[in-house]
């Protein structure tokens, strides 16, 4: 338990804040890398997922892809790209985008597909175009599931961004690795706690967003 106290005092030590290697700086960096990777992956995956969900074509590919990516060791992807692209942000970013992609794709596809078929048919029957159908019926109704995909992807990326510090000087993971190497256990544990808290906060925020996105259909009386 002493180690936890050490880690906490390491975190609260003013000299570890501010400057290029400071905790505040690294938190922002970790978040920026995470959001950038999720955003890029979302731009690619969400439209594709929505298209697949809307047309029902290619769903087997989605399922297979989501399953296969789970089996890929993220560290392997990072190190391979690290060797290929050298030290810098490109390699981790590319790896993070690749890892976020399947969760987002699966979420978008499942969300659109989960939209009540009766409601979709009715919307088509009243004369909505396919575009209107997607934007006004399927996406709003599937929003909770789509956001679930974004949540899963974000968690995956936050975790992997920690590993990314192994191949490049990025984010909070750096404290982990430098503490490990120099046997500074307070620094290492501090890094671990910071990442854990960051991930928890992100997850809870996204969970709240997800709840808020539930279509308001009124309370079910019973």
């Amino acid at each position: 338990m002493n180690l936890f106290a050490d880690a906490l005092s390491w975190i609260t030590d003013g000299s570890h804040w501010g400057g290029p290697g400071g905790i505040d700086h690294r938190i922002v960096q970790h978040l920026l890398v995470t959001f950038a990777a999720v955003a890029v992956a979302a731009v690619l995956a969400l439209p594709l997922g929505i298209l697949i969900g809307h047309t029902g074509r290619g769903r087997l590919v989605v399922v297979a892809l989501a399953g296969a990516v789970r089996a890929v060791p993220t560290l392997g992807l990072l190190t391979l790209l690290g060797l290929a692209l050298g030290i810098g942000l490109q390699a981790p970013l590319l790896a993070l985008v690749a890892l976020a992609f399947p969760s987002l794709l699966a979420g978008a596809y499942a969300g659109v597909e989960s939209a009540d078929r009766g409601a979709v048919d009715a919307a088509r029957a009243v004369g909505m175009s396919e575009w209107q159908l997607v934007t006004r019926v399927e996406v709003p109704l599937g929003a909770e599931v789509i956001l679930g995909g974004i949540r899963a992807a974000t968690l995956q990326v936050v975790a992997t961004a920690t590993l990314a510090a192994y191949i490049s000087d990025t984010g909070l993971g750096r404290y982990l690795f430098s503490g490990l190497k120099s046997r500074q256990y307070d620094e290492m544990l501090a890094g671990a706690l910071l990442v854990a808290v960051l991930a928890l906060v992100l997850d809870l925020t996204l969970a709240a967003l997800q709840r808020a996105s539930r279509p308001t259909t009124g309370k079910v009386l019973s």
Partner: peptide, 16 residues
């Protein structure tokens, strides 16, 4: 909640 903690930090916190 536990699941949302990334694996590497978990690996460091558990032995402590």
């Amino acid at each position: 909640l536990l699941y949302s903690v990334p694996a590497l930090p978990l690996l460091i916190v558990i032995p402590v």
